[in-house]
């Protein structure tokens, strides 16, 4: 019996690798998920002044650190992709491990940030702002994990 390759790697109607197209579909679906969430956040933030006051209790430094970590992790990932395209296996693995490290740093910083906010009473059920705040971050972590 000869081994056959899966259809996902051998057939393409669009000229794009099927696996790559599937990943883009997933990313496209995330546009709808997060787009709705963020659009709701923006509208409520604009029309309810109390949201601005609640947002003042968030940790801007932790948010800035996490954004820096995410941007740097995405740089490492694209460098890993470049190394893989040029058959530089060891370099590609090294960059992927650095990306994973960035993800762990993100989780640690997020844990410290949330611990402080929860200790001050800013929990998921305190107000709609904080429900948005925790839900959006949790969804981002869950989708990134999956």
């Amino acid at each position: 019996m000869s081994a056959t390759q899966p259809i996902a790697t051998t057939r393409s109607a669009t000229g794009i690798a099927t696996g790559k197209l599937a990943v883009w579909w997933v990313l496209g679906s995330e546009i709808v998920i997060f787009g709705g969430l963020l659009a709701s956040y923006i509208m409520l933030r604009l029309f309810h002044g109390s949201w601005g006051a609640e947002a003042a209790h968030t940790n801007t430094v932790a948010g800035a650190i996490n954004t820096f970590v995410l941007l740097t992790s995405s740089l490492f990932m694209v460098l890993a992709h470049h190394a893989a395209e040029h058959k530089e296996r060891d370099k590609a693995f090294r960059y992927i491990w650095m990306t994973i490290g960035g993800g762990l740093i993100f989780l640690i910083v997020k844990g410290i940030e949330w611990s402080g906010e929860i200790a001050h009473g800013f929990t998921l059920t305190k107000s709609l702002f904080w429900s948005f705040y925790y839900t959006a971050a949790e969804m981002k972590i869950f989708i990134a994990w999956s």
């Binding site: 197209l21 883009w24 679906s29 546009i31 709705g36 709701s40 990932m77």
Partner: peptide, 30 residues
Amino acid sequence: FMHLNVEKRYIAYMLGTMVLLCILFYFGTA
């Protein structure tokens, strides 16, 4: 970073359609 600038146009059209759907769903109910 995601190389959308060198991908085939189908991808950009698909993502643009998702954005339009998101706008439609949100502002249709907001």
